[in-house]
Computed example of a mutant assay.
Amino acid sequence: MATTKPAIAWLGAGLMGNPMAGRLLDEGYPVRVWNRTRAKAEALSSQGATVADSPADAVTGSDIVFTMLSDAQAVETALADVALSGKTLVQMSTIGPGENRRLAGQVNDAGGVYLEAPVLGSIPEARSGKLIIMAGGPEAAFAEVRPMLTCLGPEPRLIGSLGQASALKLALNQLIASLTVAFSTSLGFVEENGVDVDSFMEILRQSALYAPTFDKKLAKMQEHDYRNPNFPTEHLIKDIDLFKREARGLDTTMLDVLLQLYRRAQAGHGREDYSCVYDAVTGRC
Protein backbone atom coordinates (compact mmCIF):
# COMPACT_ATOMS: atom_id res chain seq x y z
CA MET A 1 0.00 0.00 0.00
CA ALA A 2 1.44 3.37 -1.07
CA THR A 3 2.20 5.89 1.64
CA THR A 4 1.10 9.46 0.99
CA LYS A 5 3.97 11.86 1.47
CA PRO A 6 3.33 14.96 3.57
CA ALA A 7 2.55 18.20 1.75
CA ILE A 8 5.33 20.76 2.00
CA ALA A 9 5.31 24.55 1.92
CA TRP A 10 8.69 25.93 0.88
CA LEU A 11 9.34 29.61 1.56
CA GLY A 12 12.41 30.95 -0.22
CA ALA A 13 13.59 29.88 -3.67
CA GLY A 14 16.90 31.71 -3.91
CA LEU A 15 20.40 30.39 -4.57
CA MET A 16 20.07 27.59 -2.00
CA GLY A 17 16.32 27.30 -1.63
CA ASN A 18 15.72 26.55 -5.29
CA PRO A 19 17.88 23.40 -5.57
CA MET A 20 16.81 22.24 -2.11
CA ALA A 21 13.12 22.46 -2.97
CA GLY A 22 13.97 20.78 -6.26
CA ARG A 23 15.41 17.80 -4.40
CA LEU A 24 12.14 17.31 -2.51
CA LEU A 25 10.15 17.56 -5.74
CA ASP A 26 12.41 14.95 -7.35
CA GLU A 27 11.66 12.63 -4.42
CA GLY A 28 7.93 12.92 -5.03
CA TYR A 29 6.93 15.35 -2.30
CA PRO A 30 4.08 17.73 -3.15
CA VAL A 31 5.60 21.19 -2.73
CA ARG A 32 4.00 24.63 -2.78
CA VAL A 33 6.71 27.25 -3.28
CA TRP A 34 6.69 30.95 -2.45
CA ASN A 35 9.42 33.49 -3.11
CA ARG A 36 9.36 37.25 -2.85
CA THR A 37 10.53 37.41 -6.48
CA ARG A 38 7.93 35.17 -8.08
CA ALA A 39 10.05 34.27 -11.12
CA LYS A 40 12.47 32.34 -8.89
CA ALA A 41 9.62 30.20 -7.58
CA GLU A 42 8.23 29.70 -11.08
CA ALA A 43 11.55 28.17 -12.11
CA LEU A 44 10.51 25.12 -10.04
CA SER A 45 7.14 24.68 -11.73
CA SER A 46 8.67 22.49 -14.44
CA GLN A 47 9.62 20.03 -11.66
CA GLY A 48 6.04 19.93 -10.43
CA ALA A 49 5.97 22.69 -7.83
CA THR A 50 2.84 24.72 -7.25
CA VAL A 51 3.75 28.41 -7.16
CA ALA A 52 2.00 30.28 -4.36
CA ASP A 53 1.02 33.95 -4.39
CA SER A 54 1.91 34.47 -0.72
CA PRO A 55 3.42 32.62 2.24
CA ALA A 56 -0.06 32.06 3.63
CA ASP A 57 -1.15 30.58 0.29
CA ALA A 58 1.87 28.27 0.28
CA VAL A 59 1.20 27.07 3.82
CA THR A 60 -2.51 26.40 3.25
CA GLY A 61 -3.01 22.63 3.13
CA SER A 62 0.61 21.87 4.03
CA ASP A 63 1.86 19.58 6.78
CA ILE A 64 5.45 20.82 7.00
CA VAL A 65 6.72 24.35 6.39
CA PHE A 66 10.34 25.02 5.39
CA THR A 67 11.99 28.44 5.39
CA MET A 68 15.21 29.18 3.50
CA LEU A 69 15.45 32.96 3.52
CA SER A 70 18.14 35.61 3.85
CA ASP A 71 17.85 36.52 7.53
CA ALA A 72 15.64 36.49 10.62
CA GLN A 73 13.69 39.57 9.55
CA ALA A 74 12.83 37.94 6.22
CA VAL A 75 11.65 34.81 8.05
CA GLU A 76 9.55 36.81 10.49
CA THR A 77 8.02 38.87 7.69
CA ALA A 78 7.16 35.78 5.66
CA LEU A 79 5.47 34.15 8.65
CA ALA A 80 3.60 37.26 9.81
CA ASP A 81 0.19 36.28 8.38
CA VAL A 82 0.66 32.52 8.25
CA ALA A 83 -1.47 30.11 10.26
CA LEU A 84 0.95 27.61 11.82
CA SER A 85 -1.34 25.84 14.27
CA GLY A 86 -0.73 22.11 14.04
CA LYS A 87 2.17 22.49 11.63
CA THR A 88 5.90 21.82 11.97
CA LEU A 89 8.17 24.67 10.88
CA VAL A 90 11.68 23.73 9.77
CA GLN A 91 13.75 26.92 9.82
CA MET A 92 16.84 26.37 7.62
CA SER A 93 18.05 29.95 7.18
CA THR A 94 21.31 30.97 8.85
CA ILE A 95 20.20 33.15 11.76
CA GLY A 96 21.40 33.55 15.33
CA PRO A 97 20.58 31.28 18.26
CA GLY A 98 18.70 34.08 19.98
CA GLU A 99 16.74 34.82 16.83
CA ASN A 100 15.78 31.16 16.48
CA ARG A 101 14.59 31.02 20.08
CA ARG A 102 12.50 34.17 19.61
CA LEU A 103 10.89 32.83 16.43
CA ALA A 104 10.30 29.48 18.10
CA GLY A 105 8.40 31.22 20.90
CA GLN A 106 6.13 32.87 18.35
CA VAL A 107 5.51 29.61 16.49
CA ASN A 108 4.86 27.68 19.69
CA ASP A 109 2.42 30.37 20.86
CA ALA A 110 0.60 29.97 17.53
CA GLY A 111 0.21 26.22 18.14
CA GLY A 112 3.02 25.07 15.87
CA VAL A 113 6.26 23.14 16.40
CA TYR A 114 9.65 24.68 15.60
CA LEU A 115 12.87 23.00 14.48
CA GLU A 116 16.03 24.82 13.40
CA ALA A 117 18.02 23.02 10.70
CA PRO A 118 20.80 25.16 9.18
CA VAL A 119 23.04 23.63 6.55
CA LEU A 120 26.72 23.64 5.66
CA GLY A 121 27.48 23.53 1.97
CA SER A 122 26.71 25.58 -1.10
CA ILE A 123 24.90 25.26 -4.42
CA PRO A 124 26.69 22.11 -5.70
CA GLU A 125 25.93 20.26 -2.45
CA ALA A 126 22.34 21.50 -2.48
CA ARG A 127 21.87 20.17 -6.02
CA SER A 128 23.44 16.79 -5.24
CA GLY A 129 21.75 16.29 -1.85
CA LYS A 130 25.05 16.32 0.02
CA LEU A 131 24.48 19.18 2.45
CA ILE A 132 25.55 18.81 6.08
CA ILE A 133 22.40 19.39 8.11
CA MET A 134 22.46 20.35 11.79
CA ALA A 135 19.17 20.38 13.69
CA GLY A 136 18.18 21.81 17.03
CA GLY A 137 14.88 21.35 18.82
CA PRO A 138 12.44 18.61 19.83
CA GLU A 139 13.44 15.03 19.04
CA ALA A 140 9.91 14.22 17.86
CA ALA A 141 9.97 17.06 15.33
CA PHE A 142 13.36 15.93 14.05
CA ALA A 143 12.11 12.36 13.65
CA GLU A 144 9.05 13.61 11.77
CA VAL A 145 11.01 15.59 9.17
CA ARG A 146 14.12 13.41 9.00
CA PRO A 147 13.01 11.64 5.78
CA MET A 148 12.72 15.04 4.09
CA LEU A 149 16.04 16.26 5.47
CA THR A 150 17.69 13.09 4.18
CA CYS A 151 16.72 14.18 0.66
CA LEU A 152 18.88 17.27 1.21
CA GLY A 153 21.81 15.72 3.07
CA PRO A 154 22.73 12.08 3.70
CA GLU A 155 23.15 12.26 7.47
CA PRO A 156 21.11 15.00 9.15
CA ARG A 157 22.11 15.25 12.79
CA LEU A 158 20.18 16.43 15.83
CA ILE A 159 22.76 18.57 17.63
CA GLY A 160 20.77 19.37 20.74
CA SER A 161 18.33 21.93 22.04
CA LEU A 162 17.06 24.92 20.11
CA GLY A 163 19.84 27.41 19.40
CA GLN A 164 22.70 24.91 19.52
CA ALA A 165 22.53 24.02 15.82
CA SER A 166 22.52 27.67 14.78
CA ALA A 167 25.46 28.35 17.12
CA LEU A 168 27.37 25.52 15.47
CA LYS A 169 26.50 26.85 12.02
CA LEU A 170 27.78 30.33 12.88
CA ALA A 171 30.96 28.82 14.34
CA LEU A 172 31.58 27.06 11.03
CA ASN A 173 30.82 30.15 8.95
CA GLN A 174 33.23 32.16 11.10
CA LEU A 175 35.88 29.62 10.03
CA ILE A 176 34.95 30.18 6.38
CA ALA A 177 35.53 33.90 6.82
CA SER A 178 38.76 33.52 8.80
CA LEU A 179 40.30 30.82 6.62
CA THR A 180 39.58 32.71 3.42
CA VAL A 181 41.26 35.87 4.70
CA ALA A 182 44.22 33.86 6.05
CA PHE A 183 44.66 32.08 2.72
CA SER A 184 44.27 35.34 0.79
CA THR A 185 47.01 36.92 2.91
CA SER A 186 49.45 34.04 2.36
CA LEU A 187 48.65 33.78 -1.36
CA GLY A 188 49.12 37.52 -1.79
CA PHE A 189 52.45 37.41 0.03
CA VAL A 190 53.66 34.50 -2.12
CA GLU A 191 52.70 36.31 -5.32
CA GLU A 192 54.20 39.59 -4.09
CA ASN A 193 57.56 37.84 -3.62
CA GLY A 194 57.50 36.03 -6.96
CA VAL A 195 57.13 32.55 -5.49
CA ASP A 196 55.60 29.99 -7.83
CA VAL A 197 51.98 29.53 -6.75
CA ASP A 198 51.93 25.88 -7.86
CA SER A 199 54.88 25.14 -5.57
CA PHE A 200 53.16 26.96 -2.72
CA MET A 201 49.98 24.91 -3.22
CA GLU A 202 51.84 21.60 -3.55
CA ILE A 203 53.59 22.12 -0.23
CA LEU A 204 50.43 23.44 1.43
CA ARG A 205 48.43 20.37 0.34
CA GLN A 206 51.01 18.09 1.98
CA SER A 207 50.81 19.93 5.28
CA ALA A 208 48.45 19.97 8.25
CA LEU A 209 47.64 23.58 7.31
CA TYR A 210 45.64 22.62 4.21
CA ALA A 211 41.89 23.04 3.86
CA PRO A 212 40.03 21.98 0.67
CA THR A 213 38.37 25.39 0.47
CA PHE A 214 41.75 26.84 -0.56
CA ASP A 215 41.71 24.92 -3.84
CA LYS A 216 38.03 25.68 -4.39
CA LYS A 217 38.70 29.42 -4.29
CA LEU A 218 42.20 29.58 -5.81
CA ALA A 219 41.11 29.97 -9.45
CA LYS A 220 38.65 32.75 -8.61
CA MET A 221 41.36 34.62 -6.74
CA GLN A 222 43.99 34.21 -9.46
CA GLU A 223 41.55 35.27 -12.19
CA HIS A 224 39.87 37.95 -10.03
CA ASP A 225 36.54 36.64 -11.33
CA TYR A 226 34.00 36.26 -8.55
CA ARG A 227 30.82 36.09 -10.59
CA ASN A 228 28.19 33.33 -10.22
CA PRO A 229 28.65 33.06 -6.44
CA ASN A 230 27.91 29.98 -4.40
CA PHE A 231 27.89 32.22 -1.32
CA PRO A 232 27.51 35.99 -1.86
CA THR A 233 29.77 38.26 0.18
CA GLU A 234 26.84 40.07 1.78
CA HIS A 235 25.59 36.84 3.33
CA LEU A 236 28.96 36.07 4.91
CA ILE A 237 29.13 39.63 6.27
CA LYS A 238 25.72 39.05 7.87
CA ASP A 239 26.97 35.84 9.48
CA ILE A 240 30.18 37.39 10.82
CA ASP A 241 28.15 40.20 12.34
CA LEU A 242 25.71 37.67 13.83
CA PHE A 243 28.59 35.71 15.36
CA LYS A 244 30.04 38.90 16.85
CA ARG A 245 26.69 39.89 18.40
CA GLU A 246 26.01 36.42 19.80
CA ALA A 247 29.53 35.75 21.19
CA ARG A 248 29.22 37.35 24.61
CA GLY A 249 32.20 35.86 26.45
CA LEU A 250 34.81 35.94 23.68
CA ASP A 251 37.32 38.49 22.48
CA THR A 252 36.02 39.16 18.98
CA THR A 253 38.54 41.84 18.00
CA MET A 254 39.60 39.74 15.01
CA LEU A 255 36.05 39.86 13.65
CA ASP A 256 36.24 43.64 13.36
CA VAL A 257 39.13 43.23 10.94
CA LEU A 258 37.27 40.54 8.99
CA LEU A 259 34.19 42.74 8.69
CA GLN A 260 36.33 45.66 7.47
CA LEU A 261 37.93 43.52 4.75
CA TYR A 262 34.72 41.85 3.57
CA ARG A 263 32.82 45.15 3.51
CA ARG A 264 35.58 46.68 1.40
CA ALA A 265 35.38 43.68 -0.91
CA GLN A 266 31.61 43.98 -1.15
CA ALA A 267 31.89 47.67 -2.02
CA GLY A 268 34.01 46.67 -5.01
CA HIS A 269 32.20 43.49 -6.03
CA GLY A 270 28.58 43.75 -4.88
CA ARG A 271 26.84 40.36 -4.61
CA GLU A 272 29.78 38.39 -5.98
CA ASP A 273 31.43 35.40 -4.26
CA TYR A 274 32.97 36.02 -0.84
CA SER A 275 36.40 34.97 -2.15
CA CYS A 276 36.58 38.51 -3.58
CA VAL A 277 38.02 39.39 -0.17
CA TYR A 278 41.33 38.48 -1.84
CA ASP A 279 41.08 41.73 -3.76
CA ALA A 280 40.60 43.64 -0.52
CA VAL A 281 43.59 41.93 1.11
CA THR A 282 45.83 42.66 -1.91
CA GLY A 283 44.68 46.27 -2.28
CA ARG A 284 42.73 45.88 -5.51
CA CYS A 285 39.59 47.31 -3.91
Rank of each mutant, 00 (worst) to 15 (best):
I132F: 10
N108R: 15
G163T: 07
A140D: 15
F183G: 00
Q91G: 05
P124L: 10
V113N: 05
L115Y: 00
G137T: 06
A135Q: 00
L158F: 09
A177R: 01
M134R: 06
L179A: 13
G98S: 04
G111H: 09
T180W: 06
E99W: 06
E155T: 10
L152Q: 08
S166L: 05
M134S: 11
P124M: 07
V90R: 00
G163Y: 01
V107A: 06
G160Y: 10
P124H: 07
P156L: 06
Q106V: 15
F142C: 05
V90S: 06
S122P: 06
Q91T: 12
I133G: 03
G129M: 11
S166N: 07
S128K: 11
A117N: 01
K169G: 02
L179V: 14
P97V: 01
N173A: 07
Q174A: 15
V145L: 06
A182Y: 08
L89H: 03
S93F: 02
A135N: 02
V119R: 02
N108K: 13
K130Y: 14
G112E: 08
N108L: 15
L120N: 13
P97Q: 01
A104E: 04
I123H: 09
T94I: 00
V90Q: 01
G98L: 04
M134Y: 08
L170P: 04
P138T: 09
S161M: 12
G153M: 06
K130A: 13
N108E: 15
P154Y: 13
A110N: 12
E155G: 10
A117V: 02
T185V: 15
